[in-house]
Amino acid sequence: MSAYLPSLVGGMLIGLSVALFMVLNGRVAGISGIVAGLFRKPDERLAANLLFVAGLLAGPVLYHAMWGDWPIFRPEGGLFLFGAAGLLVGFGSRLGSGCTSGHGVAGLARLSPRSIAAVATFLATAIVTVFVMGLAS
C-alpha cells in the first residue's frame, strides 16, 4: 500500500492545482485546452496559459531540486509510434473537448455526465490498444 503513497500524494497535488485554478481563476485546468490555447489567436487567456505551461515545465525541475534525481521516463516503442500517438492524442483531445485532466480530474470532480462518458471511452480504447499491442509484440 505504501508503495502507492507517492501516487496518491502526487494525485492530490494535481487535484489541488485543478481546484485552485477554478476557485481562484474560474477556469478548468485542462492541459489540452491550455496547450491548444497557446496557438490560438491571442486573447485574454494567453498569458495565464503560458504561465501555467511554464509552471508545468518547472515541475520536474522542482523534483530534481528536491531529490537530486530526475523523474523516471521509460518510453516503450520507437519514434514513429510516438509521432503517430502524438497526432491522435492532440486531435482526439480537441475533438472530445478534453483529456485526462479536463475530463479525468476536473470533469469527474464536477460529476459531469459528458466527462464520465469521455473517461469511460478513452480508458476503454486505451486498454484495448495496450492489449492489442501486447498481442502483436
Binding site: 516503442g77 509510434l81 503517430a84 500517438a85 502524438g86 497526432l87 491522435l88 492524442v89 492532440g90 486531435f91 482526439g92 483531445s93 480537441r94 475533438l95 472530445g96 473537448s97 483529456c99 485526462t100 475530463h103 462518458a117 469521455a118 473517461v119 471511452t121 478513452f122 480508458l123 476503454a124 480504447t125 486505451a126 486498454i127 484495448v128 490498444t129 495496450v130 499491442m133
Partner: peptide, 11 residues
C-alpha cells in the same frame, strides 16, 4: 474524440 485520444494515450 475520446476514443481517438485513448488510442494515442495507450500507444
Amino acid at each position: 474524440g475520446a476514443a481517438i485520444f485513448g488510442i494515442g494515450w495507450g500507444m
